[in-house]
Amino acid sequence: MNPNLLFKLANNAALIGWILLIFLPRWRWSARLIAPVLIPVLLAVLYAFLVITQFEHAPGEFSSLSSVGLLFQNRGMLLAGWVHYLAFDLFVGSWEVRDAQRIGIAHYLVAPCLVLTFVFGPAGWLLYVMIKSVALRTIGIESDDAAQASLS
Rank of each mutant, 00 (worst) to 15 (best):
V41M: 07
L109H: 08
I16M: 13
R75Y: 03
H84M: 05
I39V: 10
M77P: 08
A31D: 03
L43K: 04
W125C: 15
Q73V: 09
S152Q: 15
L24R: 04
E56T: 12
F91T: 15
G76D: 05
A35S: 15
W95A: 02
F72Q: 11
A123M: 14
S63T: 11
G124V: 04
C113P: 05
A147H: 10
Y128T: 11
L65D: 09
R28G: 13
N74S: 10
R28V: 10
E96L: 13
N4T: 11
L15K: 10
V51Y: 07
W95C: 00
A35P: 04
R102G: 06
V41S: 10
V119R: 07
L70R: 07
L71G: 02
D145C: 07
V115R: 06
Q73I: 06
R102M: 11
K8D: 12
F62L: 12
L136D: 08
D145M: 12
V68L: 10
S66V: 07
Y47E: 08
Y128S: 00
V110F: 03
S143V: 11
C113L: 12
W82A: 02
A111S: 15
L9T: 13
I34Y: 01
P3K: 09
A147Y: 09
F7W: 10
D145Q: 14
I105D: 05
D89M: 00
V110Q: 02
F23P: 07
P112V: 05
V83H: 07
T138V: 09
V134K: 10
V45K: 08
L127V: 11
L78S: 13
V119L: 15
E56P: 10
V37T: 11
V110M: 02
F118E: 09
D99C: 01
H107N: 07
S94L: 04
A44E: 08
E142G: 14
L116N: 04
L43Q: 06
D145A: 15
I34M: 03
S133N: 07
A80T: 01
V68D: 02
Q148H: 14
A123H: 13
S150K: 15
V97Y: 00
W82P: 03
L116D: 03
P25V: 08
L116W: 00
M1Y: 08
L86K: 00
D99Y: 02
L65I: 11
N74D: 11
L114E: 03
A146N: 14
L42T: 08
G60W: 03
K8M: 10
N2A: 09
N74R: 02
G124Y: 02
V45Y: 05
F62D: 11
V51L: 01
Y85I: 05
A87R: 06
L71V: 04
Q54F: 01
P59L: 10
P112E: 06
